[in-house]
Design a protein around this nucleic acid. Sequence first.
DNA 1: CTACGTCGGATTGTATACAATGTTGCACGA
DNA 2: TCGTGCAACATTGTATACAATCCGACGTAG
Lengths: 228, 228
Amino acid sequence: MDLTSPKETTAAGLAESLAQAIHEHRLSPGAKLSEDEVGEIFGVSRTIVRAALQQLSHERLVDLKRNRGAFVAQPSIREAREVFEARALLEPRTARSAALRATAEDIAALHRHIAEEHAALDAGKAGRALFLSGAFHVEIARIADQDTIAAFVEQLVARSSLIIALYWRRRQALCESHAHHDLIQAIAARNGDLAEELMKSHLLDLLTSLDLGPNTAVARSLREALAG
Amino acid sequence: MDLTSPKETTAAGLAESLAQAIHEHRLSPGAKLSEDEVGEIFGVSRTIVRAALQQLSHERLVDLKRNRGAFVAQPSIREAREVFEARALLEPRTARSAALRATAEDIAALHRHIAEEHAALDAGKAGRALFLSGAFHVEIARIADQDTIAAFVEQLVARSSLIIALYWRRRQALCESHAHHDLIQAIAARNGDLAEELMKSHLLDLLTSLDLGPNTAVARSLREALAG
DNA sequence: CTACGTCGGATTGTATACAATGTTGCACGA
DNA sequence: TCGTGCAACATTGTATACAATCCGACGTAG
């Protein structure tokens, strides 16, 4: 799999490039994406930029406000909960399927993902590590041979990255390095029950490590209301 | 809820209008959607049409082939299975949540859906009945207060309509009038277990009433290969 | 000093013109 | 007669020009 930057002269490539930047926290929630500015940076016309922004809008990564422009999305607390609800429905059962279908090559690919993630962390590139951590989840759906679910998971993972940017509680705690390793072992052992259970608790851990309590909820929603 | 035709001068409205036509089987899988033609019909420029077609492409309702144009999607057998796999993961648990949260008004809305569906059937508008039948599923996700999942279900239901158009086995069998009625009763009784179980078996019934066997699979995939 | 209305700049929404690509039909040759 | 190559046509891809809308600054009145 090629994890380098995509070619950015086409609408889809530009969208992927922007999505990656958002996913890696190089673009913060609420950041404005001016059509002229983006177009000049990538050397393409506004037509291409608009198509890319529309695509990202469908993926809920950018918020398209009529006559006002495109902004990196700021998921609400409610939306954050919904995203993890959806992930909790999709991913555990999919991990079970992956465990039952994984080939040796699949497991090797998962190990490569982890290695890349650790390398990025050691290099101080936390954003890239987060992106690779998300790609791990998508890869599991691909191993399960479920492209439709994989597409959903890909979107939910990207949105989760925005949620983490907004509501992550403890910054020093590294992003669960154990969970993915345990998951690989369960999958390699073809243990569907364990893989499903591990994925479920992994997602629950992720959710509970977020600051979605009612107190901060009102505070943030107030800020959102004032910020318009 | 307003189930009439949306305004078709904006990209989103046009996309919804086209999606409804696809969902109601007024546009068949494989039909070409020429930009000029669609634009002339709705009295808008190609710019708007292109945006609408892009949106439908993201929802997997149209297939956008570069330099060749937009065509109503023709889901493969594999994709058909994947769509129902995803629905099986999302909808039963969501039906349970809906049963636990439904208000009297929600249940009344569901009854109105059924009534409209029967009225459409009696009027001989089978396509519209199918559309309303799908809207019933989306409504359940809305009652469960899960907009994110509802958006996924909406897409999956629309794709299911294409799958039905391609692979429906017995034409005379009416689209499961009992299942939805039983579901309402379970939801009205706040019986989450029953609602989840009914939804699961309802989806299974739907899947098994399709012609996705390996025999027809090769035949259809051959036709697809030849049709390019 | 504050509140309101108006004007100017900037940004997006839409339409259209031009370029690039794919298709189709015909002519030519084997 | 069948297959191939070319050429004209039709359709989509992209860029740009113009229109519509929004935001902010300035000035004035209370």
